[in-house]
């Protein structure tokens, strides 16, 4: 049994706010200590799926399916159980560190808050926070405990947020675009810290990003989402070597590359399906170069193709480019 199991999760916004479900039968697994990528463009539902693990769902949404952490169903949890889940088992790192830290409170308060709330003695919590700041490469950690968030640059503050996320020794870390707001060289450093600590502690990670290259560099396995559905999943290396879904192939082809012999990025025509549209068949059909009549009738299910899974009727034929 995987530590995190999402099964057939479907999330619908209240009537009139969206024509299609924002999540549509999403299933995914993260094993203990495993790094799993969840990749998609804006509006694909990747962040909604990620937040559901903490029991955070859009207000008034109709939900079906299951989210299990360590075998327990998160969606049926009472408030106290959810609090303990968020404090001890699952931690989250958001995109914008400035938005996830209270600017009026010292970094030390922020770091020890969760531990103190869970009953750890203040002195023990403070010692632990200093250790964590040191582990994420903050110079003068004791001094940093007394400083305010505005004394830190974006990259440094994201390290503080990572330290706070690891404070409760969670078994699973949810990272929602944790380096998107950072400069490239800072991104490399933050990723280095994140992956090192995660490996040392055996923490599982669900890494949400729009950047396929980054996901492949960080994760063992990657799920690709489009319009609320998982359209492909396989190993990171396999995804680049042989993408199975036309959307994944299109995403790879549209990413500008640095290699000297790389051709210019090849756009995917059209635009992603908005929440106001509810195509009857495959949501990618309107942009797909290898669309067939049956693609417009019903959405294809995720089917196995060697070691990969892809939601495409033509998965056996391979991608035509």
């Amino acid at each position: 049994m995987a530590f995190l199991e999402i099964d057939e999760l479907t999330v619908r916004l209240p009537q009139g706010r969206a024509a299609r479900p924002i999540l549509d039968g999403v299933s995914l697994r993260v094993g203990e200590g495993e790094s799993v990528g969840l990749v998609g463009e804006s509006g694909s539902g990747k962040s909604v799926a990620c937040r559901s693990v903490l029991g955070l769902l859009p207000e008034g949404a109709a939900v079906s399916g299951a989210v299990r952490v360590g075998g327990r169903d998160v969606l049926g949890m009472r408030r106290a159980e959810l609090r303990s889940l968020r404090a001890r088992e699952v931690a989250m790192v958001f995109q914008d560190p400035r938005a996830s830290v209270n600017p009026m409170r010292r970094v030390g308060d922020f770091l020890t808050e969760g531990l103190r709330a869970a009953g750890t003695a203040p002195a023990v919590a403070a010692r632990r926070a200093v250790e964590l700041l040191e582990a994420v490469g903050i110079r003068d950690p004791e001094g940093a405990m007394r400083r305010y968030p505005h004394h830190f640059s974006g990259g440094m503050l994201q390290r503080v947020v990572i330290a706070a996320a690891l404070a409760g020794e969670p078994s699973l870390l949810l990272a929602d675009e944790p380096t998107t707001a950072l400069d490239v060289t800072t991104q490399a450093e933050v990723i280095a810290i994140l992956t090192r600590l995660q490996a040392e502690r055996g923490t599982g990670m669900l890494f949400v990003t729009h950047d396929l290259e980054l996901a492949a560099a960080v994760c063992d396995r990657v799920y690709v989402m489009y319009a609320g559905r998982i359209v492909e999943t396989q190993t990171a290396a396999g995804l680049f070597a042989r993408p199975r879904h036309p959307y994944t192939a299109g995403l790879l082809a549209s990413t500008p590359r640095l290699d000297p012999d790389a051709g210019p990025p090849k756009p995917i025509p059209g635009r992603p399906v908005s929440l106001a549209e509810a195509p009857t068949g495959c949501a990618f059909a309107a942009r797909c170069a290898q669309v067939r009549p049956e693609c417009l009738v019903e959405p294809p299910a995720l089917v196995r193709a060697d070691d990969a899974y892809a939601a495409c009727f033509r998965v056996d034929e391979g991608i035509v480019t």
Binding site: V184, T185, E189, I191, A192, E213, A217, V218, A237, L258
Partner: peptide, 20 residues
Amino acid sequence: LLLDSVPRVGWDPARIAADR
């Protein structure tokens, strides 16, 4: 350093961090 920092397969963030 800027070039090395661009994520790709076989990317080594720990080395980039040291170079930086």
